[in-house]
Design a protein around this nucleic acid. Structure first.
Lengths: 329, 329
DNA sequence: TTAGGGTGTGGTATCGATTCCATACAGTCG
DNA sequence: CGACTGTATGGAATCGATACCACACCCTAA
């Protein structure tokens, strides 16, 4: 591998001069610059960011901690993050946790050992140990999709979105509404959305039968199973079902269709996520668009502000959302 | 930031000894090791992979060049790649090109400047300039989803898959078959799949009306438009349509549904990709599963072999595929 | 007694860049 | 004419780790 030293020798100048040409800093004569550029061209020399980072203490790499890249929400968010950060010369280093708490901590350490300039945490569950770990990190850390105390976050308005969805169903005349959620360990998706559902139902004076509320695990199959539970165990069957993710809703629709029911005549559905799936399911699923890509971009901006030292106080940015009504209700 | 020097001073030993403790290399007395470990624990010292890489010439980072992360095919592939590589202590550095040829070259340079240990190219279009660039790269380069001469590749069997799909439609009795493709610049998806389609039609003695063959650009909308073209311009309307991606097929189905046609009674559809969409569209779309995640893992393995120096000759690995018949035909 | 091998430790060069400091020359101003 | 400023260049320290080499010690076998 050719180094700056080789270039210097071939061009008959010192390493310092080559460095100056590379960084357009200080004084360099035109002849010297021309010679250096020529040699660089000939040799195909590419300076080592590594060695550069060593001195400048800037790697221009941002670590991204995420549960799984191959989900729409996450990959869209990462797309937004990358769009914004690459504009500023940053690269993304992936840290896939598969939602394993031990791996999350390990990955945070690994990112630090690589001296990333900053870390973005995407929709990862938090626990006390993780929180302590994050506090000790010197580099800027920002999060998207989950509220982490003490650090800047881009948050989805889970409570209000869920309230609006429930409200919408109630306004449409539904009084018996099923709910397919996920583990309440997941604060945003599991806890907040359920809380808003219960609150809104209560504020309309609508009791919620316990069997109407079921839990799945983020995939289509578990939506199917949860719906089966609702239908088979409920005393009064719901006329509408609110699932906290599109996949769960799609699974739920699958089940009632297997019973030969008509959607939305016999039962209505709504999800959250505005996935591609929701646009082309049958019938088209009503949902809530969380604008993940924009959220990713906003998160990147928050991090960039942080890196520039503009803001020191943790800022919570609440994203907008859009209710999309389609044929499923 | 604490360094190995600080640890050495605090523990009352030399940097060398600390290094030996860190790497379990050479001889270290138990007392020395204990003291060093203690200090490391207290200070929360995390060694710099940066500096380490500087000496060892190994960054343990693999660059991944891809067109866009938020597509099912790509994100699944990356998932597979990461699963395998993280097992061996490698991290992934993302390089998003948005299919911009200039960016591809730039990204390859940037990855080299970061001294990645290897590069994986995911489903990116190739052109002469890119090819020359790749040839000059000293680090191992492998590709998945596109045949790049001279380097190990994991390839999808586009020709055979497309032939099987066409064959299947023909065997079902269809003789007028529409085809929605993409730019032939894209060798795998655009060129090969179309070639197999034409060959197979020809081998059955079925002429193909030129208006049956339309082009889209990878999204649902363009599938819709392409289908519109087919319907509006064909002299004889096809009874089946083969779209080279699920999205195009979904868009195409959308259009005929907007005409009030029934699928598969009035017209049949099949796509490629086994996307989530295909499983939950209406009707469920027949498709071909390319096993992207496995392909990603296989690609990672190829790269690992390469890194170990096991193989020097470029190896082409052809992936299997599975035809999935659903209600759309 | 001495040569040789196993242990344990530290000094120092090195990786490839940046950056501070020193030096040198030319031109300008008071 | 001396002081100063602007231009151009190179030497050497530095970033944080690894790794080679040298040295010191203790033990054992010839």
């Amino acid at each position: 591998m050719t180094t700056i030293k080789d270039i210097a020798e071939l061009a008959g100048v010192s390493r310092t001069t080559v460095s100056r040409v590379l960084n357009r800093s200080g004084y360099v004569s035109e002849t010297a610059e021309a010679r250096v550029m020529e040699v660089i061209e000939e040799t195909g020399y590419i300076p080592s960011e590594q060695a550069k980072a060593m001195r400048t203490k800037q790697t221009k790499v941002i670590g991204v901690v995420l549960p799984k890249i191959s989900t729409e929400t996450v990959s869209r968010t990462v797309d937004g993050i990358d769009t914004k950060l690459s504009e500023h010369g940053y690269h993304l280093l992936l840290a896939n946790t598969n939602l394993d708490p031990a791996k999350e901590i390990e990955h945070l350490k690994l990112l630090q050992s690589r001296r990333v300039d900053g870390i973005i945490i995407v929709a990862t569950n938090i626990n006390d140990q993780l929180l302590k770990m994050i506090e000790r990190i010197k580099e800027p850390v920002v999060a998207v999709g989950q509220d982490i105390p003490g650090i800047p976050c881009v948050l989805y308005n889970d409570y209000e979105a869920s309230r609006d969805v429930t409200d919408h169903l109630l306004q449409k005349g539904h009084r018996h509404i099923g709910f397919i959620g996920v583990s309440e360990q997941d604060r945003a998706v599991g806890h907040e959305r359920l809380r808003a559902f219960r609150d809104t139902m209560a504020s309309w004076g609508c009791p919620v039968e316990e069997n109407w509320v079921q839990q799945g695990v983020f995939d289509i199959e578990s939506g199917y199973e949860a719906m089966k539970q609702i239908i088979e165990t409920s005393k009064v069957r719901p006329t509408a079902v609110f699932a906290v993710t599109d996949r769960l809703a799609i699974g739920a629709m699958e089940y009632v269709r297997s019973l030969g029911w008509k959607i939305p005549e016999d039962i209505s559905f709504i999800g959250i996520g505005s996935s591609d799936l929701s646009r082309y399911s049958s019938p088209k699923l009503s949902t809530v668009d969380y604008y993940n890509e924009q959220a990713g971009m906003k998160t990147a901006e928050l991090l960039l502000d942080y890196l520039r030292g503009d803001k020191k106080t943790p800022e919570k940015f609440i994203m907008n959302y859009g209710l999309i009504e389609r044929n499923s209700l």
